[in-house]
Nucleic acid binder design. Sequence first.
DNA 1: AATGAATGAGTCTTCATTCAT
DNA 2: TATGAATGAAGACTCATTCAT
Lengths: 233, 233, 233, 233
Amino acid sequence: MPISAREKKSKLILDVAIKLFTTKGFASTKMEDVAKEAGISKGLTYFYFKNKEDLYMAVTKKAFDEFKSIFREIYKVKGKSGLQMITDLAHAYIDFTQANKIYYAAILNFMGIVQQYNNEELRRQIDPLILESEHFQKLLEIQHDCGKIGIQMVTMGLRDGSIRPELQAEVTFYTIWSMLIGYERLMGPVGYEGKEIKIHLENWKPGFVKLMQEMLKGTIQANKPQVVQASLF
Amino acid sequence: MPISAREKKSKLILDVAIKLFTTKGFASTKMEDVAKEAGISKGLTYFYFKNKEDLYMAVTKKAFDEFKSIFREIYKVKGKSGLQMITDLAHAYIDFTQANKIYYAAILNFMGIVQQYNNEELRRQIDPLILESEHFQKLLEIQHDCGKIGIQMVTMGLRDGSIRPELQAEVTFYTIWSMLIGYERLMGPVGYEGKEIKIHLENWKPGFVKLMQEMLKGTIQANKPQVVQASLF
Amino acid sequence: MPISAREKKSKLILDVAIKLFTTKGFASTKMEDVAKEAGISKGLTYFYFKNKEDLYMAVTKKAFDEFKSIFREIYKVKGKSGLQMITDLAHAYIDFTQANKIYYAAILNFMGIVQQYNNEELRRQIDPLILESEHFQKLLEIQHDCGKIGIQMVTMGLRDGSIRPELQAEVTFYTIWSMLIGYERLMGPVGYEGKEIKIHLENWKPGFVKLMQEMLKGTIQANKPQVVQASLF
Amino acid sequence: MPISAREKKSKLILDVAIKLFTTKGFASTKMEDVAKEAGISKGLTYFYFKNKEDLYMAVTKKAFDEFKSIFREIYKVKGKSGLQMITDLAHAYIDFTQANKIYYAAILNFMGIVQQYNNEELRRQIDPLILESEHFQKLLEIQHDCGKIGIQMVTMGLRDGSIRPELQAEVTFYTIWSMLIGYERLMGPVGYEGKEIKIHLENWKPGFVKLMQEMLKGTIQANKPQVVQASLF
DNA sequence: AATGAATGAGTCTTCATTCAT
DNA sequence: TATGAATGAAGACTCATTCAT
């Protein structure tokens, strides 16, 4: 079997896993279901992925890759101010998370694991199968890639004056990211047609984005050079 | 057994459950562990809580109650501007989430369930045991309580001029909340001593709070009456 | 359930396990078979025994206990010379091994494990489940009990003159034991009605015992008091 | 592929199998391990050996062949008394079993199977794959070869007077063999530096051999009378 | 001869939940 | 109320073996 065929099958299993994990969640998805849905035998899934956790980490890795490509796509378009990039990113981010629930859930879950991983004591509570997974190891390496791109965007905004110069790029970007993460989580409870809370998604999203922009925007028009003053942070 | 004794034992089980869910997570916590740690028999836990999911919902309910009391505590202190209240809330929120990981996880998890619950199709995928739990039902009723208090705070800020008058209270508050949710999630990955990302928690938190304030603050000093103009949202 | 009932059930499972391990061997015996044969559920076997290996070690422990009682029985009968005791032991040993194949197999298997256990390098190859078993730990403690009784017997023979005085008790006893172990193993191949080898079990056993006696016996008649001279060893 | 090449590869697989069976045991050795270690594909092992059991029987067969050559080597040396031969055999036997654990284990295991095989009822419990193996069939044919050589040795001893004339050759030899089998098995437990049992391997082996000689030796000196001085033990 | 992807029967083990006492 | 022995469905994972190429 040529390598490409091997990768194709591996991808097939991955795709099925994504679908099932999305639909039923990790815990409720049985390896046998994955195999059946992929039209292969149970054993073959274990040929391509060491165990269920490894498969999940592979899904997470793919999620990260796709996620990163969102960042990249927006970053590579020329002629936009930094603030515009961040704004575009926010929209793309929200669209992505809604369209790829499981990917997003996997990414968030990974962040949770990293929290434990970075804590000497909690680390031992992480499932060893996760730590052993090669995909997890790769994820550890690339975990900051998206952040780095986002920071570049903010840095651009600082330079072109579309973002207030006294802001610090890293702090600012991670704060933006926080907003986006929380937004997604709140969409559910908020977006409900309750009688008591009048806010609706259609109202919230533009307001959310506008607030974000207000938080960032500089007085000077984009694309103009600007001397960076002493940072506040 | 007098009612108070019954409640005492119920609370005991709950406390143990909180501790164990916090330490080991929901899935890895066995009902037997809970019983043993509480010094009672396995069967008895089922007398007080219908099933494991019910117990978890009870934990969530308690989490919500404590969470709500944070909001209340801050809201009831007189003499502060709305912006100050939101700022205090942010600090208290972050402290709470760090000190009560499981509570917070339970709340977030509940939000996730509500997302499914609010979607006709996804609702059927929720574990029936959860839907049946009386604690879940109660949670549905009170789910917006915190939001309402938060919105009150923003409204105060709008009135006293400490928050920009063109903002819309609900949109604004939920955006703040988004930030806080995301902040907590990002703390793990961000707060690591990586070589590539220079941001550290000590740097991020003040920057984060300051950005939030910048996003909100009005030109007029707090505690002064202000005519509310037409909202932009 | 009173403790005795608990022990009764534990014993029931043990007995079934012995029977099945004997009949089908350890590897081919399924835990489910044990449960079914004992008329209980699969889960209950795991309530009484941590896992399959633990159950096997429990069987081994019981084997050792019964084995030891053989030694004890023979040792406690008064009025026999040491040589007679050893002779009786040989007969009892052979009878026991034939009547309790699995017990004996378990004991031999344990000896094999101990060989590995006593070797730094090989130890890591032992199934961890075995090492963890409390029954294994107990076995380690009592492993020399039979040997000690046997050595006493030989010592008696040395003192009463029924065994040649120049022999060293420990060396002698373990040599006897070697013979017995090997005898059991060879019975199968030897005891076959082959055309080429004329030896039969009926012929071999008395010859075997007689050889053993010849190997040991002293010039002085048993049962006569004898001043024990300074031992050479 | 010329026949010799085929045999070479077959031997390669066999050698690897021996090594792995020795190190990890039969059950824990996977066919894939054997293939990998031999640098061939999994499928190919099945070209040379029908199945895992067949491979094990091939290993056993090879063990028997090597074992037999030990007997032959000693038997063909001229000018030794029968007793001396048996003594030499004992030493060679012990050396062999220690140096070739798996060979020896395979031989013992085969003896165990033969026990079952010789019993109408137990025979059906033997793995059919073993019974089908051509190597097993060959083993059945040659199983007594070693015994026959040993019996020749004893017979020589009876004739040259180095072994007591009243002994029966077959009974005597199989008793010797029993001792040797048991010795190997006991080496592990005995050879441990316990506090309670003082015997050590260095002490045991000479004592063991001497006892064996005492058991056999005739009154007429093979090659010269000899006063037995103070015991060596 | 040789490969290695693919199969799937086979088993151990877990644990939420029940129920006789 | 309280116990803890008993249940059994569920699921992950292994590995000898096959077979298309």
